[in-house]
């Protein structure tokens, strides 16, 4: 017994090392596998408010660009509004399709307080939290593309698992009308401007410059949001599917404002779909 004690004391550095190291690894594994909302991340108050302070300085650097984006978006919205006003409702029968109804989705604007593009797994922190109705797994978009999904929510902040993260998968379709679809992933890229669309059926013809849109199959993103353009088509993944490389329309380095997509029918859809699993 005494010898054992002496042994432990003599090599205490090693045993402490094992203890602390295993504990750290447990944290890593827990966090990776289950995406549990843990306290120590950038959605907590200390880290979140630190980054919003830093960001209030950094925002000035991108003001001109942010302004230009907002102006572009304004112009686009004004154009759409004009179309709606000009539309003659008598020519078309008024049928309300609840699935494509624009009021199905609600958008919450938030500003980005922390962003990274240089890590292997990138996250974004925004200044809206559960008080503003943000919930886990909501989709996040910007005026010109998709950003990611909400990962953790605190009262005033949320963290977003960016598209630039190995676990993010978004259902996309080729052209807004086509039925061909695949999943958008960041892939093995190290650049924040490019991503991959995997598992597109081989019979679908693709050309460089073809736009890619969200498919609207999940409750996270509405249908028809432009994601990017095809830049490389001849990546063979084997079998009956192919991969393409796309240039993202979202500029991740210069993200200042994002919109969180609230799907009012999400709960209904998920509940209905969960019945499928119960039936086997």
């Amino acid at each position: 017994m005494k010898n054992l004690w002496l042994f432990l004391v003599r090599y205490n550095a090693f045993f402490w090392f094992i203890l602390f190291f295993v504990f750290s690894l447990a944290l890593v594994v827990n966090n990776n596998n289950y995406q549990r909302s843990s306290f120590v991340n950038s959605s907590n108050v200390v880290v979140g408010s630190f980054y919003s302070n830093v960001n209030s300085w950094k925002e000035y650097m991108h003001l001109a660009e942010a302004n230009k984006d907002l102006l572009d978006e304004n112009a686009l919205l004004r154009h759409q509004l004009q179309e709606m006003v000009a539309k003659d409702s008598i020519n078309e029968p008024l049928i309300t399709d609840s699935m494509d109804n624009p009021s199905r989705y609600e958008f919450v604007v938030a500003s980005v307080v922390n962003n990274s593009v240089h890590q292997r797994s990138n996250y974004i922190t925004i200044n809206k939290g559960s008080l503003d109705g943000i919930e886990k797994d909501m989709g996040v978009i910007t005026s010109n593309g998709v950003v990611g999904t909400v990962l953790n929510v605190s009262l005033h902040f949320s963290t977003i698992k960016s598209l630039l993260h190995p676990d993010t998968k978004i259902s996309v379709s080729v052209d807004s009308t086509s039925s061909a679809f695949g999943s958008l992933v960041w892939g093995d890229n190290t650049e924040s401007r490019f991503a991959m669309v995997r598992d597109i059926p081989n019979h679908v013809k693709l050309y460089v410059g073809q736009p890619i849109y969200t498919s609207g199959y999940s409750t996270k993103f509405p249908k028809g949001i432009k994601v990017g353009y095809v830049v490389q088509t001849d990546i063979v993944s084997g079998g009956s599917f192919k991969d393409v490389r796309i240039l993202l329309t979202t500029k991740f380095e210069k993200l200042t404002h994002v919109y969180i997509v609230k799907d009012k029918l999400a709960k209904e859809k998920l509940e209905l779909e969960s019945l499928n699993e119960d039936n086997g």
């Binding site: 090392f17 190291f21 690894l25 447990a26 944290l27 980054y51 990274s116 890590q119």
Partner: peptide
């Protein structure tokens, strides 16, 4: 120290593990 860095990098445990190894 590692955990503080992790909090800002949203990478729980990774820097903590590296720092513990460094301490050893």
């Amino acid at each position: 120290t590692g955990l503080s860095i992790d909090a800002f990098y949203d990478s729980i445990g990774i820097h903590a593990a590296a720092c513990v190894a460094l301490a050893y």
